[in-house]
Computed example of a mutant assay.
Amino acid sequence: MTVLRTPAKPAPAAPAPRNRRLRGAGRRRADHQPQAYVFLAPWIIGAIALTVGPMLVSLYLSFTEYDLFTEPRWVGLGNYVHMFTEDDRYLQSVKVTLVYVFVAVPLKMLVSLLMALALNTRVASNGFYRAAFYAPSLLGASVAAALVWRAMFSEGGSVNNVLEGLGWDTPSWVDDPGYTIWSIILLAVWQFGAPMVIFLAGLKQVPRELYEAAEVDGAGVLRKFWHVTLPMLSPVIFFNLVLEAIHAFQVFTPAFVIGGGRGGPADSALVYTLYLYQTGFEDFEMGYASAMAWVLLAVIAIVTAVIFRSARLWVFYGDKS
């Protein structure tokens, strides 16, 4: 009688040592590095030639006196000292820019959030209103929008006509030093569509269960907004705040057009970037303009860092699942 025997299974191969596997993975990555640098080369060359290189040249010029036609003359910190101690127009540009930033950014954030709350409903016509409210943002900081705005707020414009009909007699906004900056601020607030869309996307992510639980606890509309909506929207508020603050410090086209290219009456619309442009490309003081640009870069970096630093106190990254 023949007995069939099952052949013995071969013993499983011992796993490769961990160090050998890591060396193999590292060798494969090293083999692909030349190809990676070839594909990255256009971006690296562009970044060095168009961004890093000009920034370093600008940093050097900020310590020189340079008019685009003669060799730069080293003056050390002279440009920076003159900027803060002797240049009254520079200080005026700083004042105007700070007014614009600290008024336009909160107003734009508030209006965009309120409109997002109003549009966060299931109404058939919501699509039309969302598109209509977002449309002004498509214009961006365009010359055409600023020209129309200047015509509306000039003497005899539609805004003055409406205000006069309501019994409020106002001068030409673009010709009165007390009103010019406010017309520019209103233009920025009118273009609230981009942050509104981001707020609306954030509102869609707030779980309904939180509102239902708050209603069970007897919370009203305001309490639900304060204790549910705002905490859950805090990351979106943080994102919009950073973007809008950076954009506000860089405002140029509306101030240039509405202010008539010179900063408005009594320099009431002389924002920082407009004065920088005048200094560098009209007065040909490129060294001084470079110093102004680096001060602006430092201020934007500091403000952004402060916002990021403060985020730990008010931004809530909760689990929305």
Rank of each mutant, 00 (worst) to 15 (best):
E155N: 10
S137Q: 01
S142C: 11
M152C: 06
G157S: 14
G127V: 02
L139N: 01
M152I: 15
L147F: 12
A145S: 03
A145E: 00
S154W: 10
Y134E: 05
A146V: 03
G167N: 15
G127R: 04
E155T: 13
S137F: 04
E155D: 14
G127Y: 00
S125N: 05
F128N: 03
A135M: 13
L166C: 01
V159N: 12
G157Y: 14
S137C: 00
V162A: 12
A132D: 03
G140L: 09
S125L: 04
L166A: 13
F133W: 05
S154P: 11
A151I: 11
L166N: 06
G156D: 08
A144R: 06
N161W: 14
R130S: 02
V143P: 03
G157K: 15
L163K: 12
S142P: 07
G165V: 09
L139S: 05
G140E: 06
N126V: 11
R150D: 12
G127T: 02
E164Y: 14
V159S: 10
Y129P: 00
P136R: 05
A151T: 10
L139V: 06
N160G: 15
Y129H: 03
A124W: 08
A135K: 00
V159W: 14
S137Y: 09
A144H: 05
A135P: 01
W149A: 11
M152Q: 10
G140Y: 09
L163H: 15
E155I: 08
A146L: 02
S158V: 15
V159Q: 14
G157C: 14
S137V: 00
S142A: 15
F128C: 01
F128I: 04
A146F: 03
A124N: 02
N161S: 15
A135S: 00
G156Y: 12
L166W: 15
E164C: 09
N161R: 15
A144Q: 07
A132I: 07
F153V: 08
V143K: 13
A146E: 03
V148H: 07
N160F: 06
V159M: 14
A151V: 11
S142D: 08
W149Q: 07
L147K: 14
E155P: 04
L147C: 08
M152Y: 10
G165P: 09
A145T: 06
V148K: 10
S158C: 07
L163R: 09
G157F: 12
G167M: 15
F128G: 01
G165T: 12
A144K: 02
G156A: 11
S137R: 00
G165K: 08
Y129R: 00
L138V: 12
Y129Q: 01
A135V: 04
S154A: 14
N160C: 04
W149T: 11
L147D: 07
R130F: 01
R130Q: 07
A145I: 11
L147S: 12
G140M: 09
W149S: 11
L139Y: 05
G167E: 15
G140A: 07
A132T: 06
Y134F: 15
F128T: 02
V148Y: 10
P136G: 02
